[in-house]
Simulated assay, not measured.
Amino acid sequence: MSLEPHHGGWVIVLSFLVSFMLAIMPLPAWATVWRPDWIALVLTYWCIAVPQRVGVASGWFVGLIHDVLSDTLLGQHALTLCIIAFISVKLHRRIRLFPRWQQVMGVFGLITASQLLNAGISSIVGNPLLEWSFIYPAITSCGLWPWVFIILRDMRRTYQVY
Rank of each mutant, 00 (worst) to 15 (best):
M155K: 01
G120W: 05
E4G: 07
P137Q: 07
W38D: 08
L91C: 12
C47W: 12
A40I: 05
R153Y: 10
L73I: 11
E131I: 13
I139V: 08
Y159L: 12
M105F: 15
W38R: 06
T158E: 10
C142N: 01
V13D: 04
G63Y: 14
L144M: 11
R35M: 13
G9N: 02
W10F: 15
C82D: 07
V50D: 06
R94H: 09
T112E: 05
W60D: 03
P36V: 04
G126M: 05
H92S: 09
T80Q: 05
V13E: 10
K90Y: 14
Y136C: 07
G109L: 15
S58P: 00
L97G: 06
T80R: 07
V11S: 02
L3I: 11
H77N: 14
H6N: 07
S88Y: 08
I135E: 04
P36D: 00
L116Q: 08
S2Q: 05
G106K: 04
V33E: 02
P5C: 03
F108L: 15
G75Y: 00
L22C: 06
D154F: 15
W145F: 09
H66R: 12
V42I: 10
V89K: 14
D67N: 07
R157W: 11
F20V: 10
W38C: 05
G63E: 06
V161A: 02
S114W: 03
H7C: 09
A31I: 08
V148H: 10
S2G: 01
V13Y: 10
